[in-house]
Structure formats: C-alpha cells, structure tokens
Nucleic acid binder design. Structure first.
Length: 531
RNA sequence: GGGCCGGUAGCUCAAUGGUAGAGCAGCAGACUCUUAAUCUGCUUGUUGCGGGUUCGAGCCCCGCCCGGCUCACCA
C-alpha cells in the first residue's frame, strides 16, 4: 500500500495535520518536501473518509538572525527582533518581514503545487493570548523543563534559566534577552549586549508580564504548545529534528510531561541532496525553490517528493539527465496507470503515487493518465530547431489532435524545456550550428560520406529545396544514388553542421538555415574529403 | 559517540516474503521520411560480508564492513 494510504488507514477519529516554517532561513527545494508530504497525508486522510484539516504555521515570533536579508542600516536595529516586527524590504507592500518573505517567496510555490493549507501566524496566537496557558505552565514547571532537557538531550540549563524569551520593552529585540525570575505574574529580564553573537542588546532591565505577546516560548516548548492548542494529531519533521535525543524528542517529552498532551504522530522525512551533499544555497547553483520550480512543473515536482518513501534520501542533481529522466519516469507511471503496458518494475501502488502527484484535492486521474505527453528530451531538441511548428509535430506524433488538457501539458513542458536548456541541460543536449568553421568531427568521415556531402551540395544548388520535406526527400534521394546507408548519410550531415554524431530531423534543420550557407558548408565538408 | 538512509548489471536505479529487471551504455540487425525516433535480437549478477528465521530472503532478525547525511549551540 502507498505510504500515505497506510498512514491514513492506521488512524481513527478527526485528524489535524500541521506543518510550520520559520521565515528566517533560505528556502531551497528541499524545504518543499515537508509541504508536499503533509499535503499528501492530508489528501490520503480525506480520501480514506477521515475528517481532517491541514494547518500551516509561520513561526514569525522567531528572532531575525540573518543579516543578509537586511539593509546595512537596518542590521543594528532589527537583528534579534521578532520577524513579525521587522519591516518588509523596500518595495514590498507586505505588513512586515515575515509576511513579505514567506508570502512572496515561499507561499508563491504552494499555490502552483495545488497545496492549500489553512495558514496561521504564531505571533497572532501570542498576541491574542491563546498561548498564555502554555506560557504559564512552562514557567510554573520550569524545573521540569530543565530536567527534560537534561534527560532527553543531555543539555544542562542553569537553575535560574526560564523557558521564556521576552521582547525587550526598550529596543524591541527578542533574541538578546535573558529572563530570570518568575513570580507568577511577571518575569525579570535583562537585554544583554553579548547574549548572542549576531545581535546586540540594549542593556535594558525590567520586569514584564510574559503574556499576551510580550514574550515567546523557546522553540521546543512553542512546538509542543501549538500541538496542544491546535489539537495537532499528525506532524512530520525533517531528520535533523527527528534524530534520537534531538528536538522532536524534547518537544514530545515536554508535550506529555509539562503540557500533559499526547504529541502528534510523527513522520520523519529525509532530505533532498544535491550531488550526494546536503543542499546548500551558497554552493549548489540554482537550488532555490523557485529556480527549480521553473524547470519542473508542479506535477513533476510533487512526483519527485512523493515517489520515494519519506525515510529515503532523495538524490537530486538538476544537471545531467536527472530532469529528463524524471519526466520519463512520470510518463511511464502515467502510462501504467492508464492501463498501458510498460517495461520494468513499478512501485507499489503506482496509480496512487500518480494520483497524489496530480494537483487539487480530487483530480480526474484516468483522464490525466491517458493524456498524451511529449518526451521531454525530444521536445527540448525540437525547440532548438528554428521553424518547427511544435503543436503540429506533436499532433503528428500522437496521431490525433491534442485535447485541451494535452495542449496545456505541451505548453507547460515547452516552458520547462526552455528553462532547462538555459540552466541545467548538459552540452550534449544543446544544439549549436557551427557557423564559423567546419567542425573538427568532419575529419572522421569516410570517403563515401564525403562524396555524399559533395553530391548533396550539387543537388541542393541545383534543386534549391526550401521546405523541410523537400530537404528530407533530397537527403534520402542522394543517399540512395550514392548507395550510402541512410544512417551514415545523416551522420555526415550532423558532423558537418553540428559537430555531433546525431541530431534533429535533418531536413528541418537545413531548411531553417540560409540556403547559401548550407550549400557552402556541404561543399566544404565534401571538399575536406579530397584534402 | 547517538540517529536515519544507502550498498543490486559497466553507470543510474527498480523490485515492501514468491521466477532479480528497467533506462542508459555496449554489440548485432531493420527502416526512402520522428535519426536523441521506432522496431528486433544479444548479454552481464557471490543483491557489501557472516550467521539466523522461513517451504521460500535483495526484502525480516542478529553481528560486522564501507559510504552519505544528521544530532549533541540556537531555532
């Protein structure tokens, strides 16, 4: 059974699926795995007839800790401030930094993927006082919290440490304050210059009530508090958090022992690596989510994440054959789902995998599976030949007019293929007509091929073929006269014009070039034979 | 040191207890109109190593070896 269906079959009663994201970090493709995974779980629950909701929280009470995202004059003032209180970058009309960053950059990728969770903002939960019961419990039971840190993670906290982060009343920063004394109504705090390396506190001291949005819980407690407050029953997390003795274990223990709520079912998921290494935005080129999304249409992006089980690493190197092969594999699963015979082994419940890769809560799986899809690499090649009518060619390959759905798929793939050719496509996928000089590969042609090129030059000068069809006829005709096998004739043409052993349908290629250049090049390549 | 994942054909990977198989690469062949297409044929395996469970193990259990990521500060 497909893994998401297995999960759906294992639960009972109403389910709340939750996922969350801090808007401070950079968003790369790997970040999308969790979103897609939670969406698939949500859909699996609904299809299994389970009442379910899908929440997505933005952790915008977290401290701003990335200088790169701020203008230099804003660094002093806003580093360490809650993201919900940092102004949006210039030019944005978002209410604050968190809303700008997540709203403009991250969520923009949700909609196209057909993912529509109910969004909520953690700063609003605090401001509305909804987190207050958990804040009080955490402070009342601070000794218990410290004991859990020590037992679960071997992290020793000072006996005066409190699980609360106060927003400094003077400078507005949350990352620089240290709270010490909880009297049941207020905590004492100091805003320290050297609390963290990346932000400077203002040295203000005071007492303040931690309720109503004036303070936040530390990460592990906040996570557990959200579970309790929102009644979360299923929430997966990346393996960095899921590791034994790690963040998830701490939050689970806090949820059970401090807040007395059973934590949600976990689905630990692996990362997406590029070239065997963890995805890094500084190293990997074009690893940002929106960059990959230009090359991979939503359905293929979902497919990439949904094909392996969550516990498996995804090795994704956008260079090389990875992307064409992803399309090919998607097409194979589509064909199998449509009931056509395919080669090779199929994953367990491939038709479920296919359905979850489609967009929307209840896609027409049969219609989508049966649709005609042009092979990606083939399409990419056709796009590089001037004068080719792609739609016409596709109808010819399908053998019937394209449906509306198929035209949409074609348009989508055309855009992807263009983006791929500009970004990740290997050299061998790129066609360049060698206009400047005769390619070196011509030297490898044999006498028969050279004679053929010379003969074709003469025939072309004479017959002046103009259309792709006319050229194609001539190419075959002259090959017959020269008693040269068609494959060798084409090979000679590709070597002469592209410096490659193969290429696109030659007649169309030659028809797209100026006749004088073509004849001249054929003569030159043929003459090279005599030399 | 702890956790997770992986090790299967030359390469990339599939196969969730039931005959190990796809793509690419390679070799041989077909084709006068898709030459990165299509079709036909060929072939390659100590499934990392050792034990165990089972009628049956690539898959489950135990112990190793190798590789990758991750955690032990913060979120």
């Amino acid at each position: 059974m497909y893994w998401a269906d297995e999960l759906a079959a294992a639960v009972s009663g109403r389910q709340v699926v939750n996922d969350s994201k801090s808007p401070s970090g950079t968003v790369h493709v790997g970040s999308l795995r969790g979103v897609v995974l939670h969406d698939a779980i949500y859909r699996a629950l609904r299809q299994a007839g389970v009442e379910a909701s899908f929440l997505y929280g933005v952790d915008d009470m977290d401290a701003m800790d990335s200088q790169a995202k701020l203008t230099p004059d804003a660094v002093d003032r806003y580093m360490g401030a809650p993201l919900s209180r940092v102004p949006a970058p210039e030019g944005s009309n978002a209410a604050n930094y968190a809303r700008h960053f997540v709203g403009e950059i991250f969520f923009r990728t949700f909609e196209p993927l057909g993912i529509k969770p109910e969004f909520y903002w953690v700063s609003e939960l605090y401001a509305a006082g909804r987190m207050d019961p958990y804040v009080k419990l955490a402070l009342d039971r601070a000794d218990q919290v410290r004991a859990i840190y020590l037992r679960v993670s071997h992290v020793e906290r000072n006996s005066s440490w409190l699980p609360i982060q106060v927003i400094c009343e003077q400078c507005g920063k949350i990352g620089t304050t240290l709270a010490t004394d909880w009297d049941g109504d207020t905590v004492a705090y100091k805003c320290l210059p050297a609390m963290v390396a990346w932000a400077r506190g203002c040295e203000h001291e005071g007492r303040v009530s931690p309720l109503g949005g004036r303070a936040k819980l530390p990460w592990n407690l906040e996570w557990a508090a959200k579970w309790g407050l929102l009644g979360v029953t299923i929430e997966g997390c990346g393996k960095d958090l899921a590791t034994s003795g790690g963040s998830r274990d701490r939050s689970d223990a806090i949820s059970r022992e401090v807040f007395e709520v059973e934590p949600p079912r976990n689905v630990a998921y692996e990362f997406l690596n590029v070239g065997g290494k963890k995805m890094s935005t500084s190293k990997g080129k074009g690893a940002a989510a929106h960059t990959i999304a230009e090359v991979l249409p939503p359905e293929q992006l979902r497919f990439l994440f949904l094909r392996p089980r969550p516990s498996q690493v995804i090795e994704f190197d956008p260079e090389g054959d990875t992307i064409p092969r992803l399309f090919d594999e998607f097409d194979r699963i589509a064909a199998a789902t449509a009931g056509r015979e395919v080669k090779g082994e199929l994953p367990a419940d491939h038709e479920r995998l296919f359905a979850y890769s489609l967009l929307g809560p209840s896609p027409d799986v049969a219609a989508a599976a049966a649709a005609f899809r042009p092979a990606f690499a083939h399409l990419a090649m056709l796009l590089q030949i001037p004068g080719v009518d792609i739609a016409e060619r596709m109808e010819a390959e399908k053998g019937a007019p394209l449906s509306e759905r198929e035209t949409a798929i074609l348009d989508e793939r055309t855009a992807s293929a263009r983006a791929w050719l500009e970004s990740y496509a290997p050299e061998r996928a790129r066609l360049v007509v060698r206009r400047d000089a005769l390619p070196a590969e011509v030297a490898d042609l044999d006498a028969g091929q050279r004679a053929y090129l010379a003969a074709l030059a003469a025939a072309a000068a004479d017959g002046r073929p103009s259309s792709g069809d006319a050229w194609q006829t001539l190419i075959f005709g002259v090959a017959g006269e020269c008693e040269l096998a068609a494959g060798r004739a084409f090979g000679a043409l590709y070597a002469s014009f592209l410096g490659r052993p193969n290429g696109p349908r030659a007649g169309w290629l030659l028809a797209s070039l100026e006749p004088a250049f073509v004849v001249e090049r054929l003569r030159a390549a043929g003459a090279f034979a005599a030399a």
